[in-house]
Design a protein around this nucleic acid. Structure first.
Lengths: 152, 152
DNA sequence: CGTAAATAATTGCGCATTCAACTGCTACTG
DNA sequence: CAGTAGCAGTTGAATGCGCAATTATTTACG
């Protein structure tokens, strides 16, 4: 653990930032062009869908998708208005509430996947082969953990 | 070039998104905590600084940092007010203008580096060794190119 | 040439996001 | 248990961003 990143590390960091911005923008553009939900909403819905109960506490969901609490409150407001999720009171903690995936939300997520799947293949999968992905995933995850830990 | 991304590719994509969000947030948090310029402004200033003339056309700069034209107009408005850049008329195209780095802007960038350098080392460099960085940079760059091309 | 299409930058507008403050509830501590 | 510290979620205020329309200039072409 040295103190100074090397030139190649700094350059790769910049490439990482640019690639993220470009690729997410392009995927979002395609989703919207095809009349689907945008990328950030896809993220919310798929996060809920992966849960066994298809619901998640507000705070937990905010952490998962890296959103502020207040930002999530209003995002869920909008999604609830559109019928993609609904709120549900938490039994054992009256302060809390769940965001619950609805059938309509699931349907919208599945529909968007028709555009998302070829897009992610073309813009990501074609460049990150399986063996590279397997090597890379734990690296990204470790980075995430470190950032969370050091942010307290 | 298949049509469907594999499970590991999709998982790695999600880890990539989360890692990006977490790490950039944490770096930004540290920069602000130490009284420095935020990450997006650092990006603008360092992009200008790397230019031989330390200036860039508005559109070109917007493309580099992946910003909308209007977004950049207002970002440069703010930076100009703070004295970090100034605008300069373009000689051979009266429609255009340059964003030019000032001494104050350079100083702010250099000062922020004191926080940025250990942060990027700790949150990025410790996980992406030199040989991995060398392998990864062209991958990110190719992804970027593809996204730009397919977005027209 | 002169007019139409394209381009550079800006502006109006609406929306999304965050920080800080607030409400209601829980849990810890003596 | 009483009181206080802390947590979940929401809201108000401020800010920042992008799309679409606008202005000024350049380029294309008939």
């Amino acid at each position: 653990m040295g103190l100074k990143p090397s030139e190649i590390q700094k350059d790769t960091w910049r490439s990482f930032l640019i690639a993220h911005a470009r690729v997410t923008r392009e995927i979002d553009r395609r989703l919207k062009a095809d009349g689907h939900i945008p990328l950030d909403i896809y993220d919310v819905l798929v996060t809920l869908e992966f849960e066994p109960t298809e619901k998640l506490r507000m705070s937990e969901l905010a952490d998962r998708i890296v959103f502020s609490r207040s930002g999530l409150t209003r995002l869920i407001d909008r999604l609830e208005k559109q019928g993609y999720v609904k709120r549900e009171a938490c039994e054992d903690d009256r302060r809390g509430s769940y965001a619950v995936l609805t059938e309509k939300g699931k349907a919208a997520r599945v529909k968007a996947w028709r555009t998302f799947e070829p897009a992610i293949q073309e813009l990501w999968g074609d460049f990150i082969a399986d063996d590279e992905a397997m090597r890379l995933k734990p690296v990204y995850d470790a980075m995430t953990l470190k950032a969370i830990r050091s942010g307290r």
